[in-house]
Measured scan of single mutants.
Amino acid sequence: LADDRTLLMAGVSHDLRTPLTRIRLATEMMSEQDGYLAESINKDIEECNAIIEQFIDYLR
């Protein structure tokens, strides 16, 4: 059971955070005209990261 939990934490961490990191990188490359959009996307990314952290904390 502990091994399954560790594997799940690693999978969640990698499989969800990697795309979020790519999205954040894309927002950094957006033009200044789209700053409001990038800010909104980054806020959503932070919310997703917080949910992931809560899930990982729960698994521990």
Rank of each mutant, 00 (worst) to 15 (best):
L1N: 13
L1D: 14
L1R: 12
A2F: 10
A2E: 04
A2R: 08
A2D: 06
A2L: 11
A2I: 15
D3E: 05
D3M: 10
D3H: 04
D3Q: 05
D3A: 04
D4N: 09
D4M: 15
D4E: 08
D4T: 10
D4H: 14
D4K: 11
D4Q: 11
D4Y: 10
D4F: 07
R5L: 09
R5D: 04
R5H: 07
R5A: 12
R5G: 07
R5T: 14
T6L: 13
T6M: 13
T6C: 08
T6G: 06
L7R: 09
L7G: 05
L7Y: 00
L8N: 14
L8Q: 00
L8A: 05
L8H: 06
L8G: 15
L8M: 00
M9L: 04
M9Y: 02
M9D: 13
M9I: 10
M9S: 14
A10W: 00
A10G: 01
A10C: 02
A10M: 02
A10S: 00
G11C: 13
G11E: 08
G11K: 09
G11Q: 00
G11M: 14
V12H: 06
V12A: 11
V12N: 02
S13G: 08
S13N: 11
S13F: 08
H14P: 03
H14T: 01
H14V: 00
H14M: 00
D15W: 00
D15Q: 01
D15I: 15
L16Q: 01
L16C: 02
L16V: 10
L16S: 13
L16Y: 03
R17E: 04
T18L: 09
T18C: 09
T18D: 11
T18N: 11
T18W: 07
P19C: 00
P19K: 09
P19V: 10
P19E: 00
P19W: 10
P19H: 09
L20T: 13
L20A: 07
L20V: 14
L20E: 07
L20M: 03
L20Q: 00
T21H: 09
T21S: 14
T21A: 08
T21P: 14
T21W: 11
R22E: 00
R22L: 05
R22A: 04
R22G: 07
R22D: 02
I23A: 08
I23Y: 03
I23F: 02
I23D: 00
I23H: 02
I23C: 01
R24D: 00
R24Q: 10
R24P: 11
R24V: 03
L25S: 09
L25Q: 01
L25P: 07
L25Y: 09
L25I: 03
A26K: 12
A26Q: 13
A26W: 01
A26T: 04
A26P: 15
T27L: 02
T27R: 06
T27Q: 02
T27W: 02
T27A: 03
T27M: 02
T27P: 10
T27V: 13
T27F: 12
E28N: 07
E28V: 13
E28M: 04
E28C: 09
E28S: 10
E28Y: 10
E28P: 13
M29Y: 15
M29G: 04
M29W: 03
M29A: 00
M29L: 07
M29E: 03
M30Q: 09
S31M: 07
S31L: 07
S31A: 07
E32I: 07
E32Q: 06
E32P: 07
E32S: 07
Q33P: 06
Q33G: 06
Q33M: 04
Q33Y: 14
D34A: 09
D34F: 14
D34Q: 12
D34S: 12
D34T: 13
G35P: 07
G35K: 08
Y36S: 03
Y36H: 07
Y36C: 04
Y36M: 11
Y36A: 03
L37M: 11
L37I: 14
L37H: 05
L37A: 07
L37K: 10
L37N: 10
L37C: 03
A38G: 08
A38R: 02
A38N: 07
A38K: 13
E39R: 09
E39D: 12
E39Y: 04
E39W: 08
E39F: 15
S40I: 14
S40F: 13
S40K: 15
S40R: 02
S40A: 09
S40C: 15
I41Q: 02
I41G: 01
I41M: 02
I41W: 15
I41A: 00
N42Y: 02
N42L: 12
N42A: 15
N42C: 10
N42D: 10
K43D: 02
K43M: 04
K43E: 00
K43W: 11
D44N: 13
D44T: 05
D44F: 05
I45F: 15
I45T: 06
I45D: 14
I45Q: 09
E46F: 13
E46H: 11
E46M: 03
E46K: 02
E46P: 10
E46R: 12
E46S: 00
E47S: 15
E47L: 10
E47V: 04
E47P: 02
C48E: 02
C48V: 09
C48G: 05
C48D: 01
C48R: 12
C48H: 05
N49F: 15
N49R: 06
N49K: 06
N49W: 15
A50D: 05
A50P: 12
A50K: 00
A50Y: 15
A50R: 14
A50V: 14
I51M: 06
I51C: 00
I52S: 08
I52N: 07
I52M: 12
I52F: 08
I52L: 06
I52W: 05
E53A: 09
E53Q: 11
E53G: 15
E53L: 11
E53T: 00
Q54M: 11
Q54I: 11
Q54D: 00
F55T: 02
F55E: 03
F55K: 00
F55A: 00
F55H: 11
F55S: 04
F55R: 00
I56T: 12
I56H: 12
I56P: 06
D57A: 08
D57L: 08
D57T: 07
D57P: 13
D57V: 05
D57R: 11
D57C: 00
Y58W: 01
Y58L: 04
Y58F: 11
Y58V: 10
Y58N: 12
Y58S: 10
Y58H: 14
L59S: 10
L59N: 15
